[in-house]
Design a protein around this nucleic acid. Structure first.
Length: 579
DNA sequence: TCGGAGGGCGCC
DNA sequence: AAAGGGCGCCCTCCGA
């Protein structure tokens, strides 16, 4: 049975079960826990669990979402769900109380998916807005509480705008919007797929909150040691670290005293004055010329980037108690990939992986989907030849013969087809692809054509791309029109593949979450890669769950298909040791 | 003083 | 002739 939840002040809230009156409860977490347990989703957490984030990642947090029986808590199930406006407004507080839930329906995320599908991309997604649309009333703007701008743990508690926030909608209104969404889902082109999309997106919202709660293991002592090794001792605020200053001095000595190595303009000007002009200040441009300033400048830039992205200040803000807790934004990318609103979790430099170390007696199970996007294309397009190759562990190797025996040529052909590449050997290789894999070729070409003509495209499950802007429509009928059309064609061409790959990954995580034995926890997700933190003795079981989740995600999306989605999991003590 | 644009580059 | 998808983040620069 579905239960509507509206959070109130001081841990209270409203609950409304289908067909019943709204019930006000003083302790929302306790009431939710009680109902979740009764619904057979397993213990929803230990009442004694405190709010200590680090401890919560360990053991006293109680069983997860139904423990190992909660496979149905994944993306598929049609059983009861918690229905609420926005997972980010409800779930973190429940997690603090040790409550974990199997399934939810996130109305704001779903509204976004539905609006886009209905060709109304970008309209306000709030429950109030949805309700107003439903009744033909004036639609309020989304009250932007996205917390972007004030980053850092605790930003969510920022009281700055507390006064201006409208009171939460009543539970009846929420239930009404939910019912309307269910109707609209049934009206989509393929309701089964769209239901799956909504379930996966909502599961993603739960997972994102849980990962922020549990945090990724992050050894601050190792991080500090790494920084000291690369940059020297920590400087006072605003100063360059010693190693960085030394490189800056070196560059300045070459170019003159007022030279700022962070200034692109000055770099280009300086190389021009030196008689070695460059078309840009990019590393690969600078590497082409012979000048004594190049080496120290590039070394400076690399270190400077490290200092500002992953330095002491970053760690102060994002790492606490040896846990990195970024803020994920589910569906933050138009293709359905996640984004982050702080912490840069999806751009963590590979060199930082050596500070990601499992707790004592625990291990990290790391798995990534190999060659996910071409496999997704093979499955979507129903191309027999490509699907046969995608049945192999190394898709590009299996394709090599079709492209004259060169694995690299097969790879360039596939990437060019998916990204719209046309440089180098791409045209020649795409001609081969068109001949040998006509359905796959046509699939991406059709998507590109749709984009060029200003039409919308959809992912496999029904996520819909944004419409072209008014500016684009202007441009496309002007003198530079073909350029604008091509750009949008490349976007839609890539959208269908990237968005479906994101769906597969979401489904994988949703299923995996339900299969994980307690107290194993998902702690990191990056597009096609997941990390689970678990006691060493569970590593084998977790690795096996990853494989099963990949198979189940494939079955949920594509049904029977010869395409394989290999997901090899390795158990490592340190992230840097994975692959 | 602040915000946006653009460059550059890390991740997928 | 060249031409490549999606992001976030930090920096400089420039104009309101």
């Amino acid at each position: 049975m579905n239960v509507v939840v509206v959070p109130g002040a001081d841990g209270s809230g409203l609950l409304r079960r289908a067909g019943e009156e709204t019930e006000a409860v003083a302790d929302l977490a306790a009431a939710v826990r009680e109902l979740e347990t009764r619904a057979g989703n397993g213990p929803a957490g230990d009442p004694a669990a405190g709010g200590d984030g680090r401890g919560a990642g360990r053991s006293e947090d109680g069983a997860g979402p139904g423990g190992r029986g909660a496979g149905r808590g994944g993306a598929g199930g049609g059983a009861g769900r918690w229905v609420w406006a926005d997972t980010r407004e409800v779930y973190p507080a429940l997690l603090e109380r040790g409550v974990r839930l199997a399934r939810c329906h996130d109305l704001v995320l779903t509204e976004g998916l539905l609006l886009a599908h209905e060709g109304r991309y970008g309209e306000p997604r709030s429950v109030r807005a949805a309700h107003a649309r439903l009744h033909g009333l004036p639609v309020p703007d989304d009250h932007e509480q996205d917390h972007a701008g004030h980053h850092g743990p605790g930003a969510r508690q920022a009281v700055l705008f507390e006064e201006e926030r409208p009171p939460p909608p009543d539970a009846g209104l929420v239930a009404e919007v939910h019912a309307d969404q269910l109707r609209r889902i049934e009206a989509t082109a393929d309701p089964r797929r769209f239901r799956l999309l909504v379930a996966a997106e909502s599961a993603g919202a739960l997972i994102a909150a849980e990962m922020a709660h549990d945090g990724m293991p992050w050894r601050r002592d190792l991080h500090d040691a790494l920084l000291a090794e690369m940059l020297g001792p920590r400087p006072v605020h605003g100063m360059r670290p010693p190693r960085l200053q030394a490189l800056a001095d070196e560059v300045t000595a070459v170019f003159g005293t007022s030279f700022n190595p962070d200034s692109v303009q000055q770099i280009v000007k300086a190389f021009k004055a030196a008689g070695t002009p460059v078309s840009s200040a990019r590393a690969h441009e600078l590497k082409k010329i012979d000048h004594p300033g190049v080496a120290p400048l590039l070394a400076y830039r690399e270190l400077a980037r490290f200092h500002s992205f992953h330095g002491w200040a970053w760690a102060d803000q994002w790492v606490r108690d040896d846990r990195f807790r970024p803020e994920y934004v589910v569906g933050g990318v138009v293709t359905g990939r996640w984004a982050t609103s702080g912490g840069g979790a999806l751009q963590i430099h590979k060199a930082m992986r050596r500070v990601v170390v499992a707790d004592e007696g625990w291990t990290l199970v790391v798995a990534d989907a190999a060659q996910l996007e071409p496999r997704v294309l093979a499955a979507m397009a129903g191309d027999r030849g490509l699907a046969r190759a995608a049945g192999q562990a190394d898709l590009y190797h299996a394709l090599a013969r079709a492209f004259g025996g060169e694995r690299d040529h097969a790879k360039i052909a596939m990437l060019s087809a998916m990204y719209g590449g046309t440089s180098g050997d791409a045209p020649k290789l795409l001609a081969v692809m068109r001949q040998r894999f006509p359905e796959a070729y046509r699939f991406v070409e059709d998507a590109a054509r749709a984009g060029e003509e200003g039409r919308l495209v959809r992912s496999w499950l029904g996520r819909t791309c944004p419409p072209p802007s008014a500016r684009w429509r202007e441009l496309v009928s002007g003198p530079e029109g073909s350029r604008a059309a091509r750009d949008r064609g490349r976007f839609t061409r890539n959208f269908v593949v990237q968005a479906t790959a994101a769906e597969w990954a979401l489904a994988l995580m949703a299923v995996l979450r339900g299969l994980l034995p307690d107290p194993a926890r998902l702690v990191f997700f990056q597009h096609d890669e997941v990390m689970v933190h678990c006691p060493q003795e569970l590593a084998g079981e977790v690795a096996e769950a990853v494989g099963r989740a990949a198979e189940e995600a494939t079955r949920l999306l594509f049904g029977p298909t010869p395409v394989r989605f290999p997901m090899e999991a390795v158990a490592v003590r340190c992230y840097a040791d994975a692959k």
